[in-house]
């Protein structure tokens, strides 16, 4: 029987927790399920040196597969932005439902098709935290001119309400925040933030709204995919889907653990939520930017509309189920 070895380039370093575990998990499953007929060799960022070159390398066939996040490619293909997580967008469960039942997958393939690639959901971080701030944000005024490390579309939303998004090399983030060169840093969630030590230098940890369900992606070169027999394709699909699910529960677990550590060892850290005035301004900014993105871009307009419709329908149910339940829990001791 013919065996296949797929080379996978991931955006992360070799032992980046949670993200890196997702690819390892995927590779192990594929090999086991296929009884060794399909192997995946993972090359991490330290090997290929191109964390943000994964799109190009898979497209060109230098790698058969990639593991990354769709919104990183926004500068190359603007429509890729929508397949990771949008501000005020869907939760992980809602978004998966959109992908697999609400037409999300079809839209995503439509965007990746011209680049000879297939994209699959590749693991969710859950709600990302809103970032570490060195001073409390009480009014919109406090955000004016605030220097914050916040990249991408999310950064544009922040910029709309007066924040100064700032680029800082990852290696200098800690020093920059510690010395007040910048005022705030957005990263991921407790489990990964803890490693960078922000809890030692910033007291205010804001809750998230800008990336409510960051979904990573598996990219597969189309030619490579088509060469695989149908059973191996199915094994890939299942392994990618379980890897994605596993990452969400892994994130939930690791974040809960890390948060317990922060609460215990760093009592200086206070959880904060932006006041209503700020949320409203962010929401309006987000709507404005989405309208701009949809203008003159038929494909983007369709994706945005699909997401909006799906969110409305899905959220109405989330409200009477999950939210109602969580509210119930606050009623009792």
């Amino acid at each position: 029987q013919e065996t296949f070895t797929l080379r996978l380039a991931e955006t992360w370093g070799p032992n980046f927790p949670i993200f890196g575990d997702t690819t390892k998990n995927f590779a192990e499953r594929v090999e086991k399920m296929s009884d060794g007929r399909l192997k995946v060799r993972i090359d991490s960022a330290n090997k290929h040196k191109a964390p943000l070159g994964v799109f190009d390398m898979v497209k060109a066939g230098q790698y058969d597969m990639g593991h990354s996040a769709s919104y990183y490619w926004k500068g190359k293909v603007p429509e890729t932005l929508f397949f990771t997580s949008m501000p005020f967008g869907m939760t992980a469960v809602e978004q998966w439902a959109w992908f697999y039942h609400g037409g999300g997958m079809e839209l995503m393939q439509e965007v990746y098709e011209p680049h000879n690639m297939l994209s699959f959901p590749g693991g969710n971080t859950g709600v990302q935290m809103g970032g570490w701030f060195r001073k409390e944000i009480k009014t919109l005024e406090d955000l004016q001119g605030l220097k914050m490390r916040i990249p991408g579309f999310q950064g544009e939303v922040f910029a709309e309400v007066g924040v100064n998004p700032t680029n800082i090399a990852p290696g200098e983030l800690y020093t920059a925040l510690e010395r007040n060169t910048i005022d705030a840093v957005e990263w991921v969630g407790p489990a990964l933030d803890l490693r960078l030590g922000f809890q030692q230098i910033a007291d205010y940890y804001y809750t998230g709204w800008h990336e409510p369900a960051t979904e990573l992606q598996f990219l597969v070169n189309k030619k490579v995919w088509e060469k695989l027999p149908a059973d191996l394709q199915e094994i890939m699909r299942i392994a990618m889907r379980t890897a994605s699910y596993d990452m969400l529960i892994h994130s939930q677990h690791a974040n809960a653990e890390a948060w317990a550590t922060i609460k215990e060892k760093h009592p200086n850290v206070q959880i904060k939520q932006f006041p209503k005035e700020i949320f409203q301004a962010m929401y309006d900014a987000n709507e404005k930017l989405l309208a701009e993105a949809a203008e003159g871009n038929e494909q983007a307009a369709r994706i945005i509309e699909s997401q909006e419709n799906y969110l409305n329908q899905s959220r109405a149910y989330t409200d009477i189920s999950t939210r109602a339940y969580l509210n119930t829990m606050t009623e009792v001791e």
Binding site: G13, N15, P17, G171, Y174, L194, R195, L196, G197, Q200
Partner: peptide, 17 residues
């Protein structure tokens, strides 16, 4: 500040500070 320490902090999961 040192690049080695920052990389090691990342690789070993230790706070840079």
């Amino acid at each position: 500040p040192s690049i080695i320490l920052i990389i090691l902090g990342d690789v070993l999961g230790l706070p840079v500070g």
